[in-house]
């Protein structure tokens, strides 16, 4: 059984200009212990999906259609009380450390122990601290920094603490939202390697959200490329990265520099994503697409299989 099934998911934000459809008709599944990378530019809906998986949409956001099923539980139909029990227990989140994700006035160890004790009231303070020490060892944080406050940590240490916190209750699914974006490349590389190792060790499913397709291709089994609220291409990481079919994916791959290989000019993607408040008749990428034809603007593109497990939402690929 799949760990996570997302069926025809639609999420809207109520705005002054009407309902903004941030996510529209998204389908994917994730097997236990596998990782899926969601990539796309800012505003494409990837973080919205991440938040919806935790039942943490902001007050003006709601799931308009479709279902999210995690480990047999229908997240999208749960009450706030039921969700609270699922959060961190079955699905946790790795926040970006540069954002103020750790409470500045509480000790790191206390913030971790809190996550444990909220869900396991039978665990006493001593046992919770033992677990926190175990987590510190797991992510390679020195034990003498257990009682530090967040501001005493470097960026990399904070990120490790946040990863450790996400693993506190052995969740089956971890959502990593731009976990290494604010770190320098060396620390980023270390942390990504360690995350991969931890994932294998504990058989955790990971949804990895990033704007950097090269990182995602490196870390994840599967890639889903998102554009303007829709998935436009999905498949095995290598396939999607090295054999991209959708013009948007191809443009994304070209817009990041590579260290190896010949020097090529970076190609920015011209234009802007469409406004998501109205209805969009045809393909959403059409205005920025090098291959667009007259029919693209009229009809919704259809999913097509282009390789084993490799699908693309485009009529001309």
């Amino acid at each position: 059984m799949a760990l996570l099934t997302v069926e025809n998911l639609g999420i809207g934000y109520q705005t002054a200009k009407g309902l903004l459809k941030a996510v529209d008709g998204v389908n994917f599944t994730l097997e236990p212990g596998h990782s899926l990378g969601l990539v796309g530019e800012s505003g494409c809906g990837k973080t919205t999906i991440g938040m919806a998986l935790m039942g943490l949409l902001p007050p003006n956001g709601r799931i308009t259609e479709g279902r999210i099923i995690l480990d047999g539980l229908e997240i999208s139909a749960m009450s706030e009380d039921e969700l609270r029990k699922v959060r961190w227990n079955k699905v946790s989140m790795i926040f970006q450390a540069a954002m103020n994700a750790l409470n500045p006035v509480k000790r790191i160890s206390a913030q971790m122990a809190e996550a444990i004790q909220v869900h396991r009231p039978e665990v006493d303070d001593h046992q919770a601290m033992e677990r926190v020490e175990g987590l510190f060892n797991l992510v390679g944080l020195p034990l003498e920094r257990l009682y530090d406050f967040p501001h005493q940590y470097s960026g990399g240490m904070k990120q490790r603490a946040i990863i450790a916190m996400a693993l506190a209750l052995n969740p089956k699914l971890v959502i990593a939202d731009e976990p290494t974006t604010a770190l320098d490349v060396i620390v980023q590389d270390q942390i990504l390697k360690e995350t991969k190792e931890l994932q294998r060790q504990f058989n955790i499913g990971i949804i990895f959200i990033s704007h950097d397709i090269s990182i995602v291709a490196d870390v994840c089994h599967q890639i889903g490329v998102m554009y303007a609220g829709q998935l436009v291409e999905s498949g095995p990481a290598e396939e999607v990265f090295f054999n991209s079919q959708h013009p948007y994916t191809q443009a994304l791959v070209r817009s990041f520099p590579t260290l190896a290989g010949p020097k090529t000019k970076l190609a920015p993607i011209p234009g802007e994503p469409p406004n998501l408040t109205g209805t969009i008749p045809g393909c959403r990428f059409c205005d920025r697409c090098p291959k667009d034809t007259a029919s693209c603007k009229l009809d919704h593109p259809q999913w097509r299989q282009v390789g084993p497990g490799h699908h693309v939402l485009c009529d001309h690929c």
């Binding site: 943490l56 994700a101 869900h119």
Partner: peptide, 12 residues
Amino acid sequence: DYIVLARAKGLK
């Protein structure tokens, strides 16, 4: 963001 994290942790 630490408020979002607190909520994600399943706190009341």
